Amino acid sequence: MIVTGAGRGLGRAHARAYAAEGARVVVNDLGVGPDGSGASGGPAREVVEEIRAAGGEAVAQGGDVATSEGAASLVQAALETYGRLDTLVNNAGFLRDRMLVNLDEDAWDAVVRVHLKGHFLPLKHAAAHWRAESKAGRVPHACVVNTSSGAGLSGSVGQANYSAAKAGILGLTLVASAELAAYGVRVNAIAPAARTRMTEETFAGTMAAPEDGGFDAMAPENVSPLVVWLGSESSAGVTGRVFEAEAGRITVMEGWRPGPTADKGARWSAAEAGETALKLLSRAEAPQAVYGAR
């Protein structure tokens, strides 16, 4: 199986959790900074060493998942090393936060590239392999877990690029689950909340003191059990779903569904459309607040 962005944070926790259950893991990470700058093979190698020290099997891989070549090499690494690919966990990403009027094109492109394109390309190459397996009569056990965010579900002030990319991942998940079902591939997404390099300031005060023996609510390891289950045969039949995962809480998100509606059976005038829209809004549920909104 493959975990992208597995050198630190959530990806590291997922890779270790899968390995603890006996999975053979391709640990993918470029070793970049929280803003995507720099690169190092160290983080991926360290996670591989941790897994091997605990008796598991893992190999480090440094392909850029936001390039077709890097994504293809990632899938090939799993096939060449372990002879099969069962599960893909898309997790790689970084932040370049700015208020919308200060957000430049480069920061927009970089974040959308790593999150959204970095989900699409590994999914595409893995799906091509699984389709070939299915057509050859070898129906695979094939699972994809994508990583969205509460920012993708509700928006987040100062994170237009990140929120748009994470919302796009939800759309990608729904389409992929429908298109790949014929090949035996299940595709789900999580919207996790945990303390990582990208969120350490947000959750800095939530760590339980070790001497108290308390529950560290924002530890990345709290999210991994759900991710492991979604990649296992125990979750057979579960596809096209989005789960929020935080601390000890799991929530099935229900997404966009039709609310109050009105049908005139003919074209509205602008005044009629406005009057009708206001009536419908008065009957509709209020939207979730955008993170950081006052």
Rank of each mutant, 00 (worst) to 15 (best):
A66K: 05
M218V: 15
S234Q: 15
S68N: 10
N222D: 01
D97Q: 06
S177M: 12
Q76P: 02
S177T: 12
V185R: 13
P260Q: 08
A236G: 08
E50V: 04
R257A: 15
V144S: 09
Q61K: 07
V242P: 03
S73M: 10
A217P: 10
G83C: 06
L95S: 11
L100V: 13
I169V: 15
N161F: 04
A72N: 05
G38D: 10
S68D: 12
G56L: 14
G155L: 03
A194Q: 05
P192C: 08
G31D: 01
H119E: 05
E21D: 14
G237R: 10
Y183W: 14
G62V: 15
R8L: 00
M198W: 03
G9K: 02
V187N: 07
A53K: 11
V65I: 15
G31W: 01
D216M: 09
E49V: 02
A189P: 07
L281Y: 08
L281F: 13
A132P: 04
V139L: 15
E105I: 08
G205W: 09
V112F: 07
I169N: 00
G36E: 05
V114W: 02
Y291T: 12
Q159L: 07
K264T: 12
R186D: 05
I190G: 03
A13H: 03
A164R: 07
K124W: 10
A39T: 14
D212Q: 09
T4L: 02
L74Q: 04
E49I: 00
I169F: 01
Y82L: 02
L103F: 02
D109L: 10
V25I: 14
A164D: 01
E254A: 11
D263G: 09
A17N: 00
E50L: 15
P287C: 00
F203S: 01
A219Y: 05
A160S: 14
V227F: 03
S40V: 10
E285D: 10
L116D: 00
Y183V: 04
G265N: 13
A266N: 11
L174Q: 14
L230Q: 00
R45K: 14
F215P: 05
K279I: 12
V242K: 05
V48G: 01
W108P: 09
I190T: 05
R249C: 09
A142K: 07
P258S: 05
T173K: 03
K279R: 13
N102K: 15
A176N: 03
A236F: 10
G33L: 10
R24P: 06
S224E: 01
A72V: 14
I250R: 00
A66W: 07
A176W: 00
H115T: 00
G152P: 02
R96Y: 06
G42I: 13
A151C: 05
E69A: 15
A262G: 03
G265I: 01
P220L: 02
T67L: 08
A182F: 11
G11K: 08
E233I: 01
V65A: 08
A20C: 08
